[in-house]
Design a protein around this nucleic acid. Structure first.
Lengths: 156, 156
DNA sequence: ATGAAAAATCGAAATGATTTCCATTTAATA
DNA sequence: TATTAAATGGAAATCATTTCGATTTTTCAT
């Protein structure tokens, strides 16, 4: 089933604008995570003018609405990934080709027990993202230089 | 056992400088995660001049050496936490008082199986951090305004 | 101790992703 | 078609972080 973008936007109480549709369309077609700047560059092909604030605003709204997911790259920039899957899940991201795979189990439940017993605090949110190389890139042994790893805050 | 900072630094092949010692001492005494700017402010009490690049450099080096951990706050800034625990583990961070609790189980192993079967890729790293309110702050129901949540890339 | 080499530090400036501001345009709806 | 709220653009601001090149400090062999 193809996605009904206008409908999706209406459900989020967002107006159906050509640029929003184009952003959604680009994200969905791309199938990888992309940067706001890349979104802008793509939209420049279709629109005479397209402001970066518009791109950032839209990506944020779509993320807030659960249509796209934010990917926190080891380089600490945010990327966005078309992901209308509303079930709680996490992502495996390929650092080379940027493919994203949904992971269907969230293993944080196990941690919650420890948190309840040990910390006795309240969990507000959690970050869980697995970075690596997808099957394809793994085979090719390729890691593009496009993805520097600086300032990363993560475990190896 | 108190920490032997000079020894720790030597093991990392870092020279033992007064500022490095002061940074380590401050981090260890504080017992919460702190921002680079806060480190600088603290060091200003002891040193006539202290450059922000020095603080950033040292925090990075100490993090690379495994003496401190990077905390990725929902506001997307980095904070640092004195954590010489070299066992693989993750953190529960209190968004209010900034206390950090080590979580002793890493539940990502479960995910690895799914990644092996489904993605068949190679895991390079993962981020796992649980944000919330510690027992104390939970009881007081206090959430300081100091910690805005903007641009967060995480699950609720 | 002393001096050379390597590492650390400083201040100032640069970087660069993201956000703010506000005037203008556009979509929704009656 | 008029009204109104939302969306957009462009320019400028923000601000955490990094770069640069010159100076100082630590280390360690002599």
């Amino acid at each position: 089933m193809a996605h009904d973008y206008p409908q999706m936007l209406k459900e989020l109480q967002l107006k159906v604008t050509p640029k929003r549709l184009a952003i959604l369309d680009f994200l969905a077609r791309t199938g990888t995570y992309v940067s706001p700047e890349e979104v802008r560059q793509k939209l420049q092909e279709q629109f005479a003018s397209i402001g970066l604030p518009t791109v950032y605003r839209n990506l944020d709204e779509l993320a807030a609405g659960g249509i796209v997911s934010k990917i926190i790259h080891p380089n600490r920039q945010l990327y966005y990934y078309f992901c209308p899957n509303s079930n709680h899940h996490h992502h495996f991201i390929c650092l080379s080709c940027r493919k994203v795979s949904d992971l269907h189990i969230c293993s944080v439940e196990g941690l919650e027990e420890e948190i309840n017993n040990q910390v006795r605090g309240k969990v507000v949110s959690h970050i869980l993202q697995v970075n690596g190389l997808c099957r394809n890139c793994c085979a090719k042994g390729k890691v593009t230089g496009a993805d520097r790893h600086t300032g990363e805050a993560q475990c190896r």
